[in-house]
Design a protein around this nucleic acid. Structure first.
Lengths: 224, 224
DNA sequence: ATCAGAACCAATTTTGAATTGGTTTTGGTT
DNA sequence: AACCAAAACCAATTCAAAATTGGTTCTGAT
């Protein structure tokens, strides 16, 4: 092995980066392999990579590999982490911030089939013989509204929000009465939401959803 | 093995469910084990479990096990699934729906320290010598706004949204010019957002954020 | 003293075996 | 022939150990 300068090693690595066909995630070959193919020692390569990392050209992570570009901000909280950090009132606040905007989009983009499905869910929620079944149809209604936004990312975020919500409220079943009363506040509120969506009234849908969720929040506070 | 009726098996399983100390996730013992301890055949047990599943008392999943309660709606899309399903324009639409509401909350809840940090990020973005560094400070600004909502769930959803965005737009580096021009539209827009937040003007902050993101979307469309 | 290469360590990924529910086959009984 | 329990097999998931990857220390040559 002929000794070459640090600068020459750095140049070889830069040249490699400029010409190599890397996979989509920008992952470089493992250090040991790259050192071999560039005909430099691993120590020298590591020195060069450290320089490039400090310049934001590559980032490295033990066990994962070396990648082009800046290190991604690793702030993605998975569901469990979100569940550990939040609480029912915070979930309600997040819903009040987020779901009216989903309903607004749904009013603009829902298909007739989706509106029909919302109506069906709404009716089934009203006729539900148990709280459990009411909540199933309630969940289905809200998710159909998310689907009606025709934005898979909004739907994904809504699903994430609902997963956290269920985990935070898990096990809190209502035992009395057995089913929702005939004048359960959500029934009329659901009707207003779906009507505004069917009318293509974005602002109306957002407002109706916000009122509904504020009502749910208020009832939740009454139970604390 | 004494043969017992299906009804008797069902009763044994119900009794078991009523008395057993199950783990937090409500997981029952494996079928083969439960059949043995209840002294029934696996086939008969499976019949009873199928009945209980149809009643919503338990749910079962190949490879996972049998659990008490209703099957969770397994709609949680992880980041990769979201990335595969979405596209840059959809990401922009989702941002336009969601981030103004985050800014609205930030206007209500931001601490003075967080407002100062927003200003610092804004200045550093303006002074950034490369697009890469501009984007780092831009990201930091938007995340500080999310933190200022004082809602960990909203922040978690924003992080999720941004992770998807980065994955969808990965590798799309601007090479010319080397850095943002002095009159880059986002500079003034950032200023308006932060000013509205500092003024505790929720509607103003939401509106400024919405205008900013619409402007970003418009420039994105120009580049398509 | 310095440095390259080897060896070791910690974080992560990969892989194959084990586990779990779902279904089919087998053989005994009626 | 019909029925059913048990065994065998299949598909989905989990788990543990091996392999891989970057990070650090040790060793031996110069």
């Amino acid at each position: 092995m002929i000794e070459i300068t640090d600068a020459a090693v750095l140049t070889r690595v830069r040249d490699f980066l400029a010409t190599a066909a890397l996979p989509d995630d920008g992952r470089l070959p493992p250090e040991r392999e790259l050192a071999q193919s560039l005909e430099v020692g691993r120590g020298a390569l590591r020195k060069a990579l450290a320089t490039l990392q400090s310049e934001g050209v590559v980032w490295r992570h033990v066990g994962k590999g070396t990648f082009t570009g800046e290190r991604p901000i690793d702030t993605v909280a998975d569901i469990n982490a979100m569940v550990q950090r939040t609480n029912p009132l915070e979930v309600m606040s997040a819903r009040i911030a987020f779901e009216p905007e989903v309903a607004r989009c749904a009013a603009l983009y829902a298909t007739a089939g989706q509106v029909a499905e919302m109506r069906s869910c709404m009716l089934k929620a009203q006729q539900a013989p148990t709280w459990r079944q009411y909540e199933q149809w309630d969940n289905k209604l809200h998710r159909t509204i998310g689907e009606a936004s025709q934005n898979s990312l909004l739907l994904g975020l809504l699903d994430t929000l609902n997963a956290v919500r269920r985990a935070v409220t898990w096990g809190r079943l209502r035992d009395t009465p057995l089913r929702p009363p005939g004048d359960h506040h959500s029934f009329e509120e659901h009707t207003r939401i779906v009507a505004a969506i069917a009318d293509r009234d974005g602002a109306g849908a957002a407002d109706a959803m916000r009122r509904h969720l504020r009502s749910v929040e208020s009832h939740m506070r009454d139970r604390l």
